[in-house]
Amino acid sequence: MKASPRIYRTLPRFDTQRPSAVTIGNFDGVHRGHQAILARLSECAEQRHLAATVMTFDPHPRAYFARRGQRPELIPTQISSLRDKLQALHQHRADQLILERFNQALADMSADDFIERLLVRGLNTRWLLVGEDFRYGHKRSGDVDLLRRAGQRYGFDVETIADIADEHGHRISSSEVRTSLAVGNLLRASHLLGHRYRLSGHVIHGQKLGRSIGYPTLNIRVPDQCAARSGVYVVLAHGLSDQPIKGVASLGVRPTVSQGGRLMLEVHLLDCKLNAYGKLTCIEFLEFLRDEEKFPDLPTMIAAIDNDAQSARDYFALHGL
């Protein structure tokens, strides 16, 4: 695998003038459609001796405009955390990652300035790969034709890529992944992502309630707008020992024991005791068991957790790891 990519939060880059092959997008989930784009980027960068460069935005432009317009219901859910997205882009051979802050200044930037400041001066772009309907600049005024004309002037080639479809002809998109996760359809999400859905995070201290009822949990923060359906899952925990560890996890705000809590992933490891505080773990989601519930009392909740743990054991007895 390549060395870790350089990450830039401001352009022009402070340490290089190296010419770049560039693609631009949000890359939430880094699904199979994104992977096809990244494969083409890597191939062309290698042929032309350019730095394979991914420009992405934080926050998502739609999230920015939804918050600015006080329409939180329009904020798109998030498939992957920023850490997971950057890790996936690294795995798909990016040399440079540009985390462009999406703010009012960027929203107001003209299409010509977007090209000149970010692509030409910012990245010394020599080759650019975008979707056929790619729009940019103030009020999305820039299009591919303007990019091609600018490319002739500044010396970069523009290639477009059509939407990527699966073997059934269905478009592979972040929206499709979000829809699958929202209904707990992990099989469909895996098909679109090219791997099982997963979230990573550092294990943090929780309320220690699980320990007192015989179900100690690893507590992991997830994005507030996490795309996965709140509920209980059969999972595998990676990175805590030589082998993945079987578990059962609850994703939600713990309505039985806390009021207005933040979204948390609580993972109970089956037949395993270890001190994981502060460690980074990756949780792989295998099967959706049930929705999050608010129970009338602790005994009812414990009975439900007993049942969840048994369901997870049954899953592993049938499917193995």
Rank of each mutant, 00 (worst) to 15 (best):
H170R: 15
Q70N: 13
H319D: 08
G155M: 00
D15R: 05
L106D: 08
G231P: 06
G194W: 00
H49Q: 15
V235M: 03
G184M: 01
I213R: 05
R40K: 08
M264D: 08
A63R: 15
A66L: 02
L146T: 11
D242F: 07
D166L: 06
G247N: 07
V248L: 02
R40D: 09
K294I: 02
L218D: 05
G252N: 08
T179S: 14
M264N: 09
L269V: 02
I75N: 08
H202P: 07
P12E: 06
Y215V: 02
Q17E: 14
L86H: 07
R67N: 10
A111F: 05
D58Q: 15
R135S: 15
P296N: 11
N275G: 13
L123T: 10
Q152F: 10
A105M: 05
G184I: 01
R32S: 08
L147Q: 07
S174H: 03
T77L: 14
Q225M: 13
E46I: 05
L193Y: 04
R18A: 15
L192T: 01
L251A: 02
L280P: 05
L123G: 14
A182L: 03
E43D: 14
L82H: 03
A227G: 05
I7R: 05
A304V: 00
R211M: 02
K85D: 01
P223C: 07
A63E: 15
A303Q: 13
V203N: 04
V130I: 10
D108L: 12
S190K: 14
E116L: 13
G278I: 03
R117N: 13
R148T: 13
K279G: 05
S180Y: 00
H138A: 14
I302E: 13
F285E: 00
I172K: 04
R68N: 08
L11S: 09
L82W: 10
L298C: 01
L82V: 13
L199H: 11
S180D: 10
F102I: 03
V54F: 02
L118H: 11
M1N: 08
D271A: 03
R313C: 08
I305T: 01
R262T: 15
G278R: 06
Y136W: 11
A317F: 02
H90I: 00
A304H: 05
S190H: 09
R93C: 07
G155W: 04
Q70S: 11
H238L: 09
E176N: 12
R153K: 13
K208D: 10
L236H: 04
E46W: 06
D224N: 15
L74V: 04
H34E: 07
P19V: 13
G252C: 09
R229L: 14
D297E: 14
P255I: 06
A150F: 05
C282P: 00
V267P: 12
E73I: 04
L280I: 01
F114K: 04
F316L: 07
